[in-house]
Amino acid sequence: MPGLLRGIARTAVISGTATAVSNRVSRRQQGRWAAQAAQQSYEQPAPYQQPSYQEPPAAETTTSTPDEMTAKIEQLKQLGELKAQGVLTDAEFQEQKRRLLA
């Protein structure tokens, strides 16, 4: 009978150890998979969304007074100076000029 009890005890210890090791391996693997999933979601760029652009409302055609024309000319000169200084790019200058003259 003592041999039988020793065999049962040994089997219980081995199966308990195997269960503990198996559970630990499963937890570590789950942690690795979660870390990989987080890393992949971090590395994937966000899907490209085309910026929405709305056309400005069409300007009404009105006759400008001489004072308004002088003010526009002054603003154009200021824009030209900013472009010459490198503050404005060509595209920005053209956009501001288009808005001013519209």
Rank of each mutant, 00 (worst) to 15 (best):
I8N: 03
T19Q: 12
R27E: 09
P66L: 07
R24F: 08
Q44Y: 03
L76C: 05
E68D: 07
T61P: 05
A46H: 02
L4P: 00
Q44M: 10
V25P: 01
E92M: 01
E43Y: 09
G7Y: 04
T17F: 08
K83P: 02
A18M: 10
Q75K: 15
A71N: 05
V87L: 10
Q49Y: 04
A102C: 04
A18Y: 00
D67L: 14
Q49A: 14
V25Y: 03
R6H: 06
Q78S: 13
G31Y: 01
Q78E: 12
K83C: 05
A18P: 00
Q39I: 10
K77Q: 13
G31I: 01
P45W: 00
L82G: 01
G7M: 13
P2M: 10
G80I: 00
V87R: 09
R98L: 14
A46M: 05
P51F: 00
A102Q: 09
R28N: 15
L82N: 02
E92G: 06
Q49P: 01
R10A: 14
Q78W: 04
L88E: 01
R24E: 12
S22Y: 05
T17R: 12
N23S: 11
T61C: 08
A37C: 11
G3H: 07
R99C: 04
E68F: 02
A20Y: 03
E95H: 08
G3T: 08
G86F: 04
M69D: 09
G16Y: 03
T62R: 15
G80R: 12
T89M: 10
P57N: 06
A20G: 10
K83M: 13
G7I: 07
R6F: 07
L101P: 00
A9E: 06
L88G: 01
L79A: 04
Y48C: 00
V25N: 08
V21H: 02
N23A: 15
A59T: 05
P2H: 08
Q49E: 11
R28T: 12
Q39K: 13
L100A: 04
A34H: 05
S64A: 12
Q29T: 11
A9D: 10
E95Q: 14
S26A: 14
E68M: 07
A58S: 11
D90L: 08
D90K: 08
M69R: 14
Q78H: 12
P47E: 07
Q36V: 10
L100T: 00
F93T: 00
T11C: 09
T62D: 05
E92C: 02
R24K: 13
L101C: 01
E43F: 08
S15V: 12
T65V: 03
A12W: 05
P47Q: 06
P56F: 01
T70M: 15
A20D: 03
S26W: 02
Q96A: 15
L101S: 05
Q85V: 12
Y42N: 13
E74L: 14
Q29L: 15
F93V: 00
T17L: 15
P47L: 11
L5Q: 09
S26P: 01
A38D: 09
Q96V: 02
P66M: 03
T65G: 05
A91R: 07
P51C: 01
A35R: 13
A91G: 01
G3Q: 11
Q44P: 00
T11D: 09
M69C: 05
V87S: 13
I73C: 09
T70W: 05
E81S: 14
Q54N: 10
Q75D: 07
K72H: 04
T65A: 09
G31L: 10
A18R: 07
T89G: 08
S22C: 10
Y48F: 15
Q85G: 12
K77G: 10
T89I: 08
